[in-house]
C-alpha cells in the first residue's frame, strides 16, 4: 500500500506525455470555428436564410465533433489509471471471537498466528484476506 501514491504519480506522468499538444490545438481551433459559424448563422439569418442554415449545420457538426474528441480524451486519461481497491485482513481470536479488521500488510497470510488477543490475551490468527469492491448502483438488469 505504501507505494500506491508513487504509482499514481507515475500514471499521471505517462498520460500527460501521451496527449499530443497538436491534437489539443486542433480540437480547440475546431471548437472556436464552430462557435464562429454559429454566430455567423445568427447574424446573416435575416438576409439569407439558406446560408444561415448551412452555417448552423457546420457549427453544430464542428461543436459535436470537438466535444466528442475532448470527452474521449478525458475518458482515456481516466481509464489509464490502475485502480487498486484496499485489501483487508481479518484477525480473529479463536477463543473469544474478537475480530479486528485492518488494511493488509506485507507478510500477512491466512492462518498466520499473530500476537495476543486484546480482550482475553489468547493468541489470535488471520482468518481472512479480501478485497472489497464498492459497486456503483447499477440499473436493474432484466436477465
Amino acid at each position: 500500500m505504501a507505494d500506491k501514491s508513487s504509482e499514481t504519480t507515475g500514471t499521471t506522468e505517462t498520460t500527460a506525455r501521451r496527449i499530443s499538444s497538436f491534437v489539443l490545438v486542433v480540437i480547440f481551433v475546431t471548437l472556436a470555428l464552430s462557435l464562429v459559424a454559429l454566430y455567423f448563422s445568427m447574424e446573416i439569418y435575416p438576409r439569407n436564410e439558406a446560408a444561415a442554415g448551412y452555417f448552423l449545420l457546420i457549427g453544430f457538426i464542428g461543436l459535436a465533433l470537438s466535444s466528442y474528441m475532448l470527452l474521449q480524451m478525458r475518458k482515456r486519461v481516466l481509464k489509464w489509471r490502475l485502480k487498486l481497491p484496499p485489501i483487508m485482513t481479518i484477525i480473529e481470536c479463536q477463543k473469544c471471537g474478537f475480530k479486528n479488521v485492518r488494511e493488509f500488510k506485507r507478510g500477512d497470510y491466512v492462518f498466520k498466528q499473530m500476537g495476543a488477543c486484546e480482550k482475553c490475551n489468547e493468541p489470535v490468527m488471520i482468518t481472512g484476506i479480501y478485497r472489497e469492491i464498492k459497486e456503483q448502483k447499477k440499473k436493474e438488469e432484466k436477465f
Partner: peptide, 15 residues
C-alpha cells in the same frame, strides 16, 4: 464587422 466577413456567403453561389 460581421456583415462584411459574411458577405461572400450571402451570395447565391454559396449554396
Amino acid at each position: 464587422n460581421v456583415s462584411q466577413i459574411a458577405q461572400p456567403f450571402l451570395d447565391e453561389n454559396f449554396g
